[in-house]
Write a protein that binds this DNA or RNA. Structure first.
Lengths: 203, 203
DNA sequence: TAAAACCGACTGGCTGGTCGGTTTTATAAA
DNA sequence: TTTATAAAACCGACCAGCCAGTCGGTTTTA
């Protein structure tokens, strides 16, 4: 039987929850073992180190989220709308999975500099999705000639901050802020001096 | 002689640099001692714990930055312009003090949950400055009727992300991005359906 | 001469990772 | 089907390094 992948998945799941709860540094391998009903030795049979395990968790989550974002973008009526859909889908996903949000947005830093590269990589993947849509929106004349790279950082930074604020303040779900946030971000991209070439349906 | 404050300041300075370089967790008290030419015992005479020391460092930096931002805002020709000036001043300050940027923007998380409250507090102080100016700008008719609280988070989130990207990618100074960033952020606040009531000089 | 400031060897708790050994599974010969 | 056996998977007591914080003692200052 091919239990291999199955077991790895079980470990990844437990590790994600522990990392999300405690942060990288305060997460204990033994705790992950407890939640997996597996000994430390067993864990280390599947992953060579705590660091590898953490990265595997990050990759798994990032993949899921990026996939979801890309799929959501597919449903967009226009490139700009696709970008909006991608943004909102991520916001929704994080809203309903607080642990995941914690993990992705804050809990990695305690790892030290090694995390920076991974954080960068994950954000870059999201940024790439946004940039792609915005570039197309630019060509389609939906938005003005802005620096899409910078714009993507504005989008992600805003998203990040909204989520962080939610995590730390126990306020209302960031999902509620989505419409207004979308409005703000899109408004910043519209042609400054008059109308875009194509009338575009609102989402 | 009143060496007390002086010495405290020296320690704070050294601690800031060590925390910025290594992050909270990897920063060693002994290293701070080395850079202060003071023994561990001496350090502990002035600060009761590593955590207290870190918080003191954070407070000191936050105060400096907020003061600078508020002063910069004073020079604004209009409320909106004041908000822009505040934003740019912070961006400039962080651009020229990479260590300070690291410390404020990422290195605290490794402390664990205790840091969250402090991070929140510091960001909230900046947000308050922005919100204040934007509210006035709203009254002055410079901007449309947006959620200034959310807008402040968009501003700070964008600022944060631009800085983080700079820190992790060794790209060009975020100062260079300031004009375009300012344009994007301000554009998102203009009246959506036509012109604002007052013509406003560009900064 | 007392209080403040400083020293630095030492300790105690902690936890990632190891490793010799045990159990389970897959494969194959009997 | 049963037995043999090698490999894979798992176990958990133990080790080793790390470092914040302590404390009895010394030096400096008022």
């Amino acid at each position: 039987m091919q239990h291999r992948t199955e077991t790895r998945e079980r470990i990844l799941e437990a590790a994600a929850s522990v990392f999300a709860d405690k942060g990288y540094h305060d997460a204990l391998i033994d705790e992950i073992g407890r939640r997996t009903s597996m000994s430390k030795g067993g864990l280390y049979f599947h992953f060579p180190s705590k660091e590898h395990l953490f990265f595997a968790v990050m990759d798994r989550l990032a993949n899921k989220l990026v996939q979801r974002a890309e799929k959501a973008a597919t449903g967009g009526s226009t490139p700009l709308n696709a970008a909006e859909e991608a943004l909102v889908s991520v916001l929704n996903e994080l809203s309903t999975h607080k642990r995941l949000a914690r993990l992705l947005v804050t809990q990695g830093y305690s790892m030290g500099s090694a995390f920076e590269a991974k954080r960068s990589e994950v954000f870059e993947r999201f940024a790439a999705v946004i940039v792609d849509k915005l570039e197309k929106a630019k060509i389609a004349g939906e938005i003005s000639d802005v620096d899409t790279d910078l714009a993507s950082r504005v989008w992600l930074g805003s998203l990040n901050e909204v989520v962080v604020h939610w995590l730390f303040s126990n306020g209302t779900s960031p999902k509620d802020a989505a419409p207004e946030l979308k409005r703000l971000l899109v408004a910043s991209l519209r042609s400054p001096s008059g109308s875009a070439s194509g009338g575009v349906p609102e989402s």
